[in-house]
Design a binder for these strands. Structure first.
Lengths: 339, 339
DNA sequence: CATTACAGGTAAAACGTTTTAGCAAAATAC
DNA sequence: GTATTTTGCTAAAACGTTTTACCTGTAATG
């Protein structure tokens, strides 16, 4: 089952492989191939269902029509949904996607970059981990098109598409304040990267603007790599340690899920004794009783923007980098209404 | 940033590219390259951090160390979790994964196969759609290693790894029966593929074994490609059409989710007026009030088996095909207890 | 009529590997 | 001391494209 090659077409058409290549790449006019020959080659090509061997083409041109997608965790709802959109959008441009999960582990991320590099992907979509800035800069100096997502490095000028995390957290917290909650805590991930820093900052700013208590003791930063059991235990310990706590904001979807579980096992009634807001929408949040208020990301827009920026960069590399910050939407539900 | 090539190493070592290739492919002894030269080449290679150009290698050998993964929907929890495991397992063998979602659409599936083919993947992991049997057979006669997952074609002898769907549905239904539910319905997807057929059969067999009513009117088969709104409407229409219905089994995770939503909007109390069992475990099922009984798939075992079978086939193609059927686990929760 | 221009193509190199076939020198056999 | 085998290595082809440089014949130019 050897595939059809350009030579086969050439033979059938009685011309040279060169001519076939020209025609099939749309350079017929430019290279002055006659209408006749051109048509003939086209016909034979479609009849034989010729598909160029991407390896050979890649070897010659250096372009593989493949992009690398590095996410935090493909099993996470948010990243999985995004991956689907990226796949669809990339497909429109004829690109395929190679993916990998970092688990928020820098070594794993470096490994993935390495693999993608010698697989010669044309461009990268990267959810960077903590110390990946050096690698990102290296890719940039090598003029590799790349787009960061979900988070970025403030000191590195690169393309990125992220959520307005500050606004997301601010809105969530302000909403809780307006609902009359007085002592609001946050549970987040111990990360100094922008997405978490901005969420924390938004939280703090909203507290300040609404003249609510703000202290270190209202913040819990958990390591990323705990299992659910440990998340639950840590969250319970934290929540019970705060006197008069009446609301909590969970800064990621999986923290929110653990949060719900923890609070219930404490016997507190969500929306009554304790207000709750989560991050990223989820079927669970919509259908939970009570339903869970959350900050929702415009996943479709994010995916589309990422691919559009990357494709623009692939086709017309430009000096100036594009930073896209999309607005979140606060979806108000029962978990934050004191009634 | 041209990569280091075998020629660069050859030049530095003062030998021919051939020799370098032999050494780096572990054929030093076989090809009688001296210890000295061998060591020297190894050293230079690691010093220069040589990584073979996979395109060139692939072009020459026909092997790309890439496998194609075709799922129904990468945004679906089950497939996303599986994709992660497949990625990890494949990585252990040095393989990367190209993926795509079919949306249960045969044309899309054919398109994906086409793309994967001319990307020259070494092997395929396929969640087949309805009429994909011809394509599967074609791949087989072309001696392409492939493993089907989630479902298979009874009339095609191929490797596959699936759940014991009959048992899953049987256990779920029998459980409902034992709990005292009398009129049990099923909502499934209108598909004649094995996974759905077996679930339906398991459901029917359990009803029969427990001497419960079984009639066509207790079965609802919905098209795959509805949006959630339509799923909900259809499910509501169906459930209200059955007199004295007191339990329902949803044969996929997304149907279960829609089912919960529908039943609630009907004002029925899950676990009281109506017993409910879902398919595939999900955070939502665990944390819903009441919590949802479900048939859970051993995702990790599935993923590992799939990759193991594929790798065996890649390395030692054999005549006999392997059919692996894994046992589901019924996770009993509140939605099926009449108390 | 001699020159130039252009139309319509092709030969061959290159991309970076792997692999087959073979060569020269050293070692062994008789 | 010649014939054979073994050792240690290499030249060159091949994988399927793309692309540069050129070639040949005809038409236009002066």
């Amino acid at each position: 089952m050897k595939g059809i090659s350009i030579k086969d077409i050439a033979k059938q058409a009685g011309v040279s492989p060169t001519t076939v290549s020209f025609v099939l790449n749309g350079k017929a006019k430019e290279k002055r191939i006659s209408e006749q020959v051109s048509k003939k080659i086209q016909k034979i090509a479609t009849r034989l269902k010729y598909k160029p061997n991407q390896l050979a083409r890649g070897l010659r041109t250096g372009k593989t029509k493949t992009i690398g997608l590095i996410v935090e965790d493909i099993a996470n709802n948010f990243f999985a949904s995004l991956a689907k959109i990226v796949e669809d959008e990339a497909d429109k441009y004829g690109y395929k996607v190679l993916y990998g999960s970092t688990e928020d582990n820098t070594e794993k991320a470096k490994g993935l970059l390495e693999v993608l590099k010698y697989r010669q992907v044309d461009g990268y979509i990267i959810t960077p981990t903590k110390n990946l800035d050096k690698e990102i800069e290296q890719l940039q100096t090598a003029a590799k098109p790349l787009v960061l997502m979900d988070r970025y490095f403030p000191h590195v000028s690169s393309h990125y598409v992220v959520l307005d995390n500050f606004k997301g957290a601010y809105d969530a917290t302000a909403h809780l304040a307006k609902q009359g909650y007085k002592k609001i805590a946050i549970v987040t991930i111990a990360s100094d990267q922008t997405q978490m820093k901005d969420r924390l900052d938004g939280f703090a700013a909203a507290l300040k603007d609404h003249k609510l208590t703000f202290s270190k003791s209202l913040i819990k930063r958990l390591p990323f790599d705990l299992d659910r059991e440990s998340f639950n235990n840590e969250i319970k310990k934290f929540l019970t340690s705060i006197k008069d706590i009446d609301a909590v904001f969970f800064a990621t979807n999986y923290l929110g899920i653990s949060g719900i579980e923890s609070i219930r096992s404490l016997g507190w009634r969500i929306g009554k004794e304790i207000g709750l807001v989560g991050f990223d929408d989820h079927d669970l949040f919509r259908l939970h009783s009570p339903s869970i208020t959350c900050v929702s990301q415009p996943i479709h827009a994010i995916g589309k923007n990422i691919v559009d920026v990357l494709m623009k960069e692939l086709n017309h590399p430009s000096a100036h980098t594009q930073q896209i910050v999309l607005a979140p939407e606060l979806i108000v539900r029962e978990s934050s209404s004191r009634t």
